[in-house]
Nucleic acid binder design. Structure first.
Lengths: 352, 352
DNA sequence: TTTAGCACTCTCGTGCAGAGAGTGCTAAAA
DNA sequence: TTTTAGCACTCTCTGCACGAGAGTGCTAAA
């Protein structure tokens, strides 16, 4: 790839800014008039032509202005955007909201999704924290009636699974509680394998329960992420690129589909990549359903203990600066929450 | 409202059927040709004119066919549709799916939403079971590290809330477990008030925890419904009435907004109305954002113990027969699951 | 009460012309 | 060598006219 001159970079950045703002091809004269470039439209045209040649820009048709290509966006995001940060007052506002919801574990994901949707102005997506491997933490057995028992299984990292069991005979709550406590002590901090091995050391009710616990844990082990919370779907439909409903549908289908999310997370986010913000522009030629879309996402949490992912999905024509900084900041806050709750100490971002 | 003749009812029903199918105004000649009515187009035209006069039909413009008005749809649903049922083989299929997911409480809502979306071909919405009033069932305290404690509170009806506590001093897990058990025994089956009253009987850690429990329960008490699961968003966008994105946005915004759901549930569904399927057509003049939409919904569960709501949101031009029967059937299955798990006996629909 | 006939109305697709915006190219200026 | 002015060219978009098609309402006859 040939390098761009400084002036070309300036022009590219201006075109991208302008196009993100107005969703219309940007012409040379217009650009010169608006930004007082100090050169003539003809000069700008020459530069544009050469960048079109190089693949950073394209023309929807012969006599229209230029719009950025995916390559253009990528170059912009990687080389021209620099490290962006949210304004301090917005940070304070968000931090304050998170601080208030600090204790309410169920609320974290929803809040993060809402904040992301508002600041990025596109659709957001947050998975709840989820341990990379299922580690037993706590078990509770609750008698409902007859031989139905509600089993509440708490795993390390905050996963809570409810499971309804139909036992072969009825038990008193006292007996169930005793069993649960016994098993909690025995299985504490064990993995799926550990719990499975434990089955042989017990018999009767305890063994029966342990087997089910191991089963549930095995299912959790296989999941790439926890619950998914979505927000800002309507932001999506406002964008002109989705004025024709079929493309909006394509994108929304992916957004809705759990399997796609799992695929992206597996493909893009190394489990250990907490902190780094990934930008996928136009599906990177890999997901053709995402031709018109970009994804900005990051992992958050405490690697090895519990992590989750969060990000946004929007048109390629996205305000990358604002979005990336929002994703980075919210991921940081979520990491703090997770770390604070499972390790007892955070980086202190929330405390400010 | 003047009564319709039998022939008028037939014609109205045919027009609605046809319009639901093709989304195009229905003309007199077309109708006679397709359904071999045995009368001439002119006769049908006369009937159409009189029903237009009476407000059951309307014309998009002078020389177009007729389409149903909201009043027409309402009359159709109330008087002409009759009791519809899903085909037996579809019922079997659905029942089988639910049977398989029987134990997995977390999965119920997702499954119901998926089934509804598939069968109604519009967007579906399911709230998880939720007790009308918060009743204490079980408490668990889990030491994480430092003075952070994860409190898992199980309420009657299946609500499980996680709350993170920062205690004033650190405690051993054994001590926490003991306290949790003590409190579980004392607060068993108590309401918010009961738990609040209990605070005075304890001191130290126990009292501190109880206060927080009462707080969480009070918050749950105020909620109209549990978690919301959505599905089938993309079905929505396929419909021609949402080809222009702004109307799709309107509808989707409502669909996404929790507060609107709460409002509808409060307004439309009496807590005791389990089993009855409600149909809201065109917002009933009350919600003007729903002008082009209809909602079909029902409450499910065990009244007084735990209930939830489920339903679909789609264009007024909706296959009411199929949708209503799907909603009714799924609501029945969900009721069975809830009743079975909290009362130990269902109506047996699942067992078949 | 029903029906045939007919004039009328409205939408939709197509073709066409003109305005507007922007480009590429060439030749002159810096 | 780089920049700029000038100009012809291309393409989209809008408005307009026109005809085909579909459906209606009305009138008068069966």
């Amino acid at each position: 790839m040939q390098a761009l001159t400084e002036r070309q970079e300036t022009i590219l950045a201006l075109i991208i800014h302008q196009y993100i703002d107005a969703a219309q091809p940007v012409g040379s004269k217009w650009l010169v008039d608006k930004y007082h470039l100090g050169v003539s439209p003809a000069t700008v045209r020459n530069e544009m032509a050469s960048m079109t040649e190089a693949g950073f820009l394209r023309q929807p048709h012969t006599s229209a202005g230029r719009i950025p290509t995916e390559k253009g966006y990528r170059f912009f995001v990687r080389s021209l955007l620099g490290e962006t940060e949210l304004p301090a007052n917005e940070k304070r506002l968000i931090s304050h909201q998170f601080h208030q919801a600090r204790g309410d574990v169920d609320e974290w994901g929803r809040l993060a999704a809402a904040v992301l949707a508002r600041h990025s102005r596109v659709a957001s997506l947050v998975t709840t924290p989820h341990a990379d491997r299922a580690i037993f933490k706590h078990l509770e057995l609750i008698n409902t009636r007859g031989n139905q028992v509600l089993m509440v299984l708490v795993l390390m990292g905050g996963d809570v699974r409810q499971q309804l069991l139909a036992l072969t005979s009825t038990f008193e709550q006292a007996e169930l509680s005793q069993t649960a406590q016994k098993l909690t002590n025995a299985a504490q901090n064990k993995s799926v394998k550990g719990v499975a091995r434990l089955v042989e050391e017990f018999d009767g009710l305890a063994a029966e329960i342990l087997l089910l616990v191991a089963g549930v844990m095995a299912r959790v082990d296989g999941l790439a992420a926890g619950e998914v919370v979505r927000d800002g779907l309507t932001n999506f439909l406002g964008e002109p690129e989705f004025a024709d409903t079929t493309s909006a549908r394509e994108a929304l289908r992916l957004f809705e589909e759990r399997s796609f999310l799992d695929e992206v997370l597996a493909e893009v986010l190394e489990p250990a990549s907490v902190g780094a913000v990934q930008v996928i522009i136009g599906g990177e030629g890999y997901w053709k359903e995402l031709e018109k879309c970009s994804i900005v996402l990051a992992r958050y949490g405490a690697p090895g203990l519990a992590t989750g992912a969060l990000g946004v999905l929007g048109p390629t024509r996205m305000a990358y600066g604002r979005t990336i900084s929002a994703v980075r900041y919210v991921a940081g806050l979520m990491s703090d929450l997770v770390i604070e709750s499972f390790e007892g100490q955070g980086t202190g971002r929330l405390a400010q």
